[in-house]
Simulated scan of single mutants.
Amino acid sequence: MTEEINNCIKILKEGGLILYPTDTVWGIGCDATNPEAVKKVYQLKKREDSKALICLVAHQAMLERHVREVPEVAYDIMDLATKPTTIVFDEPKGIAENLVAEDNTLAIRVASDKFCQYLINKFKKPIVSTSANISGEPTPKQFKDIAPEILKGVDYVVNLPDVNKNAIPSSIIKLSNDGQVKVIRE
């Protein structure tokens, strides 16, 4: 696993794209602070950049560095969630502008699997995590379901076995600084 993490970090530092297993589905990733890298993800997915992407952090301390204010309830949600849960936060900071939604929010998930935690911890920055498919196409549940176009469009494919055989996308909850909570995807 160390070799895979080092290979990913090299690509991420160069502004490249990786295809990697996340705590949910296989994802396309890049340095979440690099606008050029983020642009490549939108191009590969054939997705409008007005449709925001999810960002992964290694731990709560990294989350706190990239959101102006983390509502208290966010910690409860993270602690009590029974499956990977992405939270949409107001006022992200230190992130590529083209990753931030028009309403100045960003969807962030604290990674729960060891590979992502180690990778992001060693990289020391958040990484983009978006499903490994062309926008509008079905989300691939396993590596074998990933389209050749996606495999050719990334700079590095992580060589780890499918760990999530029944992978499903994360839940998404929007937490506004004014206390509003909205479930976007269960």
Rank of each mutant, 00 (worst) to 15 (best):
residue 146 I to L: 10
residue 51 K to W: 10
residue 77 I to H: 06
residue 167 A to E: 02
residue 67 V to H: 01
residue 61 A to H: 12
residue 142 Q to H: 11
residue 53 L to I: 10
residue 77 I to P: 07
residue 168 I to L: 15
residue 170 S to T: 12
residue 125 K to A: 07
residue 130 T to F: 03
residue 100 V to A: 08
residue 96 A to S: 09
residue 163 V to F: 12
residue 170 S to I: 05
residue 130 T to C: 08
residue 114 K to Y: 12
residue 106 L to I: 13
residue 141 K to M: 14
residue 171 S to A: 15
residue 94 G to T: 08
residue 53 L to E: 04
residue 103 D to L: 03
residue 70 V to Q: 04
residue 93 K to I: 11
residue 168 I to W: 01
residue 69 E to Y: 12
residue 76 D to T: 14
residue 125 K to Q: 08
residue 45 K to F: 10
residue 143 F to D: 11
residue 114 K to G: 03
residue 57 V to G: 02
residue 71 P to Q: 04
residue 121 N to A: 07
residue 168 I to C: 12
residue 89 F to E: 06
residue 157 V to W: 09
residue 124 K to G: 07
residue 52 A to D: 05
residue 63 L to D: 09
residue 135 S to W: 12
residue 102 E to K: 14
residue 174 K to F: 03
residue 149 E to A: 15
residue 170 S to R: 06
residue 106 L to C: 06
residue 59 H to L: 03
residue 110 V to Y: 00
residue 157 V to K: 15
residue 71 P to Y: 01
residue 168 I to M: 14
residue 163 V to E: 14
residue 57 V to D: 01
residue 57 V to L: 03
residue 49 D to P: 09
residue 174 K to M: 11
residue 112 S to V: 09
residue 82 T to W: 07
residue 77 I to T: 07
residue 124 K to Q: 15
residue 145 D to E: 13
residue 50 S to E: 14
residue 139 T to A: 09
residue 128 V to W: 01
residue 146 I to W: 10
residue 173 I to K: 02
residue 132 A to H: 06
residue 81 A to G: 05
residue 56 L to T: 06
residue 61 A to Q: 15
residue 74 A to P: 05
residue 117 Q to F: 00
residue 168 I to Q: 15
residue 126 P to T: 05
residue 173 I to R: 03
residue 116 C to E: 11
residue 149 E to Q: 14
residue 52 A to P: 09
residue 45 K to S: 08
residue 49 D to T: 05
residue 141 K to S: 13
residue 82 T to L: 13
residue 131 S to W: 03
residue 75 Y to W: 12
residue 121 N to W: 01
residue 119 L to C: 07
residue 76 D to W: 09
residue 151 L to S: 01
residue 136 G to W: 04
residue 76 D to H: 13
residue 161 P to Q: 10
residue 91 E to P: 00
residue 69 E to P: 00
residue 73 V to R: 01
residue 138 P to S: 11
residue 170 S to W: 02
residue 69 E to M: 12
residue 75 Y to N: 05
residue 42 Y to E: 01
residue 64 E to S: 13
residue 63 L to V: 08
residue 53 L to K: 04
residue 46 K to A: 11
residue 119 L to S: 09
residue 120 I to T: 10
residue 48 E to L: 13
residue 64 E to H: 08
residue 59 H to R: 13
residue 55 C to W: 00
residue 155 D to T: 09
residue 101 A to Y: 01
residue 97 E to L: 02
residue 168 I to N: 12
residue 121 N to H: 10
residue 104 N to A: 09
residue 155 D to S: 11
residue 104 N to E: 13
residue 60 Q to S: 12
residue 103 D to R: 10
residue 150 I to H: 00
residue 73 V to P: 00
residue 109 R to I: 05
residue 172 I to N: 03
residue 46 K to V: 02
residue 126 P to F: 00
residue 120 I to H: 05
residue 143 F to W: 14
residue 139 T to M: 05
residue 151 L to V: 15
residue 81 A to E: 07
residue 73 V to I: 15
residue 41 V to W: 02
residue 80 L to N: 11
residue 40 K to G: 04
residue 169 P to S: 13
residue 51 K to R: 12
residue 83 K to C: 08
residue 81 A to R: 11
residue 118 Y to G: 00
residue 123 F to L: 05
residue 86 T to S: 12
residue 95 I to K: 11
residue 98 N to H: 06
residue 101 A to N: 10
residue 120 I to M: 07
residue 121 N to G: 15
residue 78 M to N: 10
residue 43 Q to K: 15
residue 138 P to I: 07
